[in-house]
């Protein structure tokens, strides 16, 4: 709806203004974000320097995966993660009412209120390294493939968002578990590795982590033409199902909140 777009545009502006209001903090955050990205790349580059293939993934593909991870996680942190952290605070300090009284969808307001521009350095880094390594990576660029790739990337993002939101919804029942959100950062970090790695370690682990392993690896596999139909369908399935669950669970949690509080 148009109103949601206009409100979101205003929220983006306000986040930008807040960012500029604190110059020292801005530079520092950019610096941290940038340093983090660089170090991740150096680590992966180093660790895969002597290997030609890891679990069926060629070195170039691992590098591509890392670039894509950087881009995806950068987008996610820019749009969403700070909101989840704040959500823990908001629920813990009983400030949810301010959101519920507004004539807008509360899931939207809570998930998208703040935009963390400093995380966009990871996106830029990802794109930068992608460009730098383009000769090593060397995949055929077919416009349809690229378009579908972005579609899969979108679903990966949707899946990641849904998982986070479902976890955050549990805070309504246990507001003091703020560490739960911190845990999600670690969980997101697990998406940077090929799913096969977890499969090899333990079948049970793999099954448990299945949705997570699909998030980035599937779009990449698609790009290098190694994705099975099963992978793609699983991603779409999980993304759609978990998103619907996140909405239903949130509505359910709100009913609990309005019934059980005073």
């Amino acid at each position: 709806m148009q109103r949601y777009l206009r409100v979101y545009r205003k929220l983006c502006e306000m986040s930008l203004e807040t960012l500029m209001a604190y110059r020292a903090n801005f530079i520092n955050s950019m610096g941290s974000s940038f340093a983090w990205g660089i170090f991740s790349f150096i680590s992966i580059f180093l660790l895969t320097s002597k290997t030609t293939s890891v679990y069926g993934w060629k070195r170039e593909e691992i590098i591509l995966l890392t670039c894509a991870y950087s881009i995806m996680i950068g987008v996610f942190h820019t749009l969403f993660s700070r909101n989840f952290e704040r959500m823990a605070e908001i629920i813990n300090f009983a400030q949810l009412d301010t959101f519920l009284v507004k004539p807008m969808d509360s899931q939207f307001l809570l998930s998208m209120r703040w935009v963390n521009y400093t995380a966009s350095t990871r996106v830029l880094l990802g794109i930068g390294f992608l460009f730098y390594f383009r000769r090593i990576i060397a995949i055929e660029l077919n416009p349809l493939a690229i378009a579908l790739f972005f579609v899969l990337l979108f679903f990966g993002l949707l899946l990641l968002y849904s998982i986070w939101f479902i976890v955050a919804t549990f805070l309504i029942w246990s507001p003091r578990l703020s560490n739960l959100i911190e845990l999600m950062y670690s969980v997101s970090g697990m998406t940077r590795f090929p799913g096969e790695m977890y499969k090899n370690a333990s079948e049970y682990l793999f099954l448990f982590l299945l949705p997570i392993t699909l998030i980035i690896t599937t779009p990449i596999k698609f790009l290098v033409a190694r994705a099975s139909l099963f992978d793609v369908l699983s991603l779409l399935f999980f993304a759609a199902v978990l998103f619907v669950i996140s909405r239903k669970l949130w509505k359910f949690a709100l009913r609990y909140y309005t019934s059980a509080s005073s």
């Binding site: 206009r6 409100v7 205003k10 929220l11 306000m14 203004e17 004539p103």
Partner: peptide, 10 residues
Amino acid sequence: ETFLLNKEIY
């Protein structure tokens, strides 16, 4: 700024 935000929301 918050007033303008509410303007959009309402």
